[in-house]
Computed example of a mutant assay.
Amino acid sequence: MTWTSMTQNPEGLVSVYQGTVPPLVGVRIHAVSLDRDGPRLGLRFDLPEYPAVAPKKWQLHGYDTVQVELVFSGLRDVELRGFSTQLSGDIDLVRGKALTVSVSTDSMRLSAVAESAYIAKMSAYLNGTARTASGGSEG
């Protein structure tokens, strides 16, 4: 089961990646947020690969990185250990009776249990370090 299949609204991201969204391995994590409304956990991160054929708007701007904000709603439990300004690691989603998310980096461990997940935002920007296909700020 892919991570996108465990979200409520994967269509836009799946379309941009023409059906093959990269796994959440080696992602750069920009933000971890908790919100009592929901309650919710938010993760904002860069995907490890850029789409082979990016949207025209992204191509015109020369973007090279896709950023996703993934929100976990109906948060029941969360544990966070450590943090850093340089967070790069893996995000793992497991669907059981609830949705479990685990984030593992060299300096941080996060685990949470939620009812559901959705893609709150998908954008692209010029990071300046093209990692795969050509293309790639907010779009």
Rank of each mutant, 00 (worst) to 15 (best):
M108V: 13
E115G: 07
V78H: 07
V66W: 00
S102H: 01
A98Q: 12
D92Q: 13
V68I: 13
L99K: 02
V68W: 02
L99M: 06
S123C: 07
D106I: 13
S116C: 05
Y118L: 14
D92I: 15
V94Q: 07
L110G: 00
S107A: 12
T100F: 00
S104P: 03
M122W: 03
L80M: 12
A120S: 13
Q67M: 09
A98R: 08
I119F: 00
S134M: 08
L126E: 15
G135P: 00
I91K: 02
Y118P: 06
T105F: 01
V78Y: 02
V71M: 06
L110V: 03
M108F: 01
V103N: 01
R81C: 05
L87I: 07
K97A: 12
R95P: 03
D92W: 04
I119V: 12
D77L: 07
V103R: 01
R76Y: 03
E115M: 05
Q67V: 12
G74F: 02
R109S: 11
D77A: 10
L87G: 01
S73H: 04
T105R: 06
V113I: 10
G135I: 11
R76C: 10
Y125I: 15
D106S: 07
G74N: 13
T105S: 05
E115R: 05
R95A: 12
R131D: 15
G135Y: 03
S116Q: 10
A133Q: 12
S123N: 09
D90Y: 04
A112D: 08
G74M: 11
Y125W: 11
V103A: 02
V94A: 05
N127P: 02
D77H: 08
L87T: 03
A117Q: 09
L70R: 08
I91H: 00
S107N: 12
T85G: 10
A98T: 12
N127W: 05
A98S: 09
M108T: 13
Q67W: 02
K97Y: 04
S107V: 12
S88E: 15
R76V: 13
G89T: 02
L87W: 06
S88Y: 09
Y118E: 15
S73C: 04
A120T: 15
S73K: 05
D90V: 07
F72W: 03
V78T: 10
R76L: 08
F72C: 04
L126H: 13
S88K: 14
E115I: 05
T105W: 04
G96F: 03
S123E: 14
V103L: 13
F83C: 11
V103S: 01
R109G: 06
I119Y: 00
L75Y: 06
A98H: 06
Y118I: 15
L99A: 06
V113G: 02
S102P: 01
E115K: 04
Q86N: 11
A114P: 03
L99E: 10
A133K: 09
S84W: 08
V68G: 04
R81L: 09
G82V: 12
G135H: 05
I91T: 06
S84P: 00
S73W: 01
F72I: 03
L99Y: 00
A120Y: 05
L93A: 11
S111L: 14
N127G: 09
S111I: 15
S84V: 13
I91V: 07
A114L: 04
V103G: 02
